[in-house]
Computed example of a mutant assay.
Amino acid sequence: MVNSKLFAQKPVDDGGTPESVWQQWQRPFPELDLSSCKRLVIVAPHPDDEILGLGGTALMATRSGIDVQIVSVTDGGASHPGSPTLTRAELEQRRRVESVRAAEELGTPVPVRLMLPDGDIRTHSNELAERLHEILAEAPDGTWCASTWRGDGHPDHEATGTAAAKACADTGARLIEYPVWTWHWATPEHPSVPWDRLHTITLPDDVRQAKTSAVQQFTTQILPLSDHPADQPILPPHALTRLLRTYETVFV
């Protein structure tokens, strides 16, 4: 399921597949049933992935009485290599603060931080699987673990998904996987995407607005750090448009 080459072939600045193309695609998908979920552990490779992928779902789950826990694998210090404005340590600090503010916007718990190295999760995949095992092993029946999809394209996203799948297999937690960068490099009916496994979660207007407000907290990712080329946004408007839909998606 490794799709990193497909992701690498479509730089973010090139725009990827426009949201208009996805909106014109008329393939229907079933709605995810959360009724059997008692605890939802959302695993994010970087601070913001939990919001971009499942922020609305996290809010809806919290409102319905589901115990939600966010696990941030890294502190996101590698998002702007070569930045003349912020050091890696300074960027990590900024991103930790941003994720706390985003959680406050949604009313979800502050993320648990594993502090593995951003950009090198694959090397630490065994450690990540073990630490997720510890988190999930303490969980009651009805625990779901939502991680970035193992085929999402970004190497950290795929490595996180693989580690989460192993932890779920070892603990009995139910694995669901959310795509983030898939919407950038893939196209409707792309053969590398398991569309038959896709489910949606419809977001009420107020939930979508809260998610949007949470995303706006990640200023280091959606705004330039400076005018320098190395400081440009990681999530330009065309990328955010694909992630701020009226629904969220998971593979089950």
Rank of each mutant, 00 (worst) to 15 (best):
W149K: 06
G172P: 03
R113T: 12
G161M: 04
E127D: 14
D141F: 05
T143E: 03
V180G: 06
P117T: 09
L114M: 13
P109I: 09
G142C: 02
H154G: 10
G107K: 10
A139Y: 01
E105L: 07
A139R: 04
E134F: 05
A186H: 01
E158P: 03
G172E: 08
A163L: 04
Y178R: 01
H154C: 08
E138G: 15
T108Q: 08
T162A: 15
H154I: 06
R131G: 02
A159S: 14
L106V: 08
C145T: 07
A146F: 09
V110S: 13
V180C: 13
E130C: 05
W149I: 09
L106D: 04
D156L: 11
W144C: 06
A146C: 11
A129S: 15
G161L: 04
L128Y: 02
R122K: 15
E189F: 12
P109C: 08
A167M: 01
E158M: 13
T160K: 02
R174C: 12
H157S: 08
T187N: 10
W183Y: 08
W181V: 04
L116M: 14
V100H: 11
G107N: 12
T171A: 07
H133F: 15
A163I: 12
E134K: 14
A146M: 03
D120W: 01
A165W: 00
T123I: 00
D170G: 01
P111I: 03
G119A: 09
L106E: 00
R122G: 12
E158T: 11
T162S: 14
L116V: 08
A164N: 02
D141V: 11
E105D: 08
A139S: 15
A164I: 02
A146H: 06
G153S: 06
P179E: 04
E158G: 06
R113D: 01
E130W: 00
L106N: 03
C145Q: 05
D156N: 10
D152N: 13
A165I: 01
C145A: 13
T143D: 06
R150G: 15
P109R: 07
T171K: 08
W144L: 09
R101Q: 14
H184S: 09
R113K: 13
A165M: 10
E105C: 15
D156I: 08
A129T: 10
L114H: 02
E127W: 09
K166E: 15
K166T: 15
E134C: 11
T182C: 14
L114K: 05
R122T: 11
R150F: 00
W181L: 09
T143M: 00
A103V: 09
G153R: 05
N126F: 01
D152M: 07
I121W: 00
A129W: 02
D170S: 12
H124W: 13
A173K: 03
I176D: 02
H157K: 12
G107Y: 04
P117D: 08
A146W: 02
H157L: 10
P155Y: 10
W183G: 10
H133M: 05
C168E: 04
E134W: 04
W181Y: 13
A173P: 03
P117N: 10
R174G: 00
A167H: 03
P188V: 06
A164V: 08
A186N: 05
D118S: 13
E177P: 06
A169Y: 00
E189V: 10
